[in-house]
Amino acid sequence: MTNILVLGGGYTGITAAIRVARKTRAARVTLVNASPRVTERLRLHQTAAGERLADHALTDVVAGTGVEVVAGRVAGIDPDAHEVRLDGGRVLGYDKLIYALGTVTDASVPGVAEHAHVYDDYAAAVRLSRRLDELTGGTVVVAGGGLTGVETAAELAEARPHLRVVLLTRGRPGSMMGGSARAYMEAALERLGVEVRPGVEISKVLPDGVELGDGELVHSDATIWTTGTKGLPLATESGLRVDARGRIVVDPELRSVSHPDVYAVGDAAAITQKFGVMHGTCQGGIPSGLAAADSLAATLRGRTPKPFRFGYIHQPLSLGRKDAVIQFTRPDDSPRRWYLAGRAAIVYKETVSGSPIWTWKLLKRGLVPVWVFALTAGF
Rank of each mutant, 00 (worst) to 15 (best):
L317T: 09
K204D: 09
L206R: 14
R330W: 11
A222M: 12
A264M: 15
R301S: 12
T15L: 06
Q327M: 11
F373E: 10
A183E: 12
Y184G: 00
P173F: 08
D120V: 04
G174K: 08
G179W: 08
G102S: 05
D60V: 00
A17W: 12
G144M: 07
V67C: 00
P36V: 04
T299W: 00
E201Y: 05
V67M: 02
M278K: 07
L86E: 06
G284A: 15
S353N: 13
V67P: 00
G342Y: 06
L5A: 11
D121P: 09
D121H: 14
T236S: 15
F275S: 12
I14E: 02
L363E: 05
D120H: 11
A264N: 13
A298H: 10
E216Q: 14
V150S: 08
Y99D: 06
R19D: 10
T304M: 11
R197W: 09
H45L: 07
R309H: 14
A293W: 07
V112F: 06
T136S: 15
I357V: 13
R160I: 01
T236H: 09
V325F: 02
R170F: 03
R127E: 15
V368L: 09
H314S: 14
V91F: 12
G366P: 06
V165W: 07
V84G: 03
R160Q: 05
G354P: 02
G13P: 05
G137P: 04
A244C: 03
L290K: 00
I357K: 10
I286F: 00
P287N: 08
P305N: 07
G64K: 12
A113T: 05
T39Y: 01
V200F: 08
V205C: 11
R197N: 00
H219V: 09
A157T: 13
Y263L: 14
R131C: 03
L135D: 01
Y94N: 03
A344C: 00
R241T: 09
I346K: 01
R255I: 05
A113I: 03
H82E: 14
E186R: 11
T59D: 06
P173R: 10
K230H: 10
E195H: 11
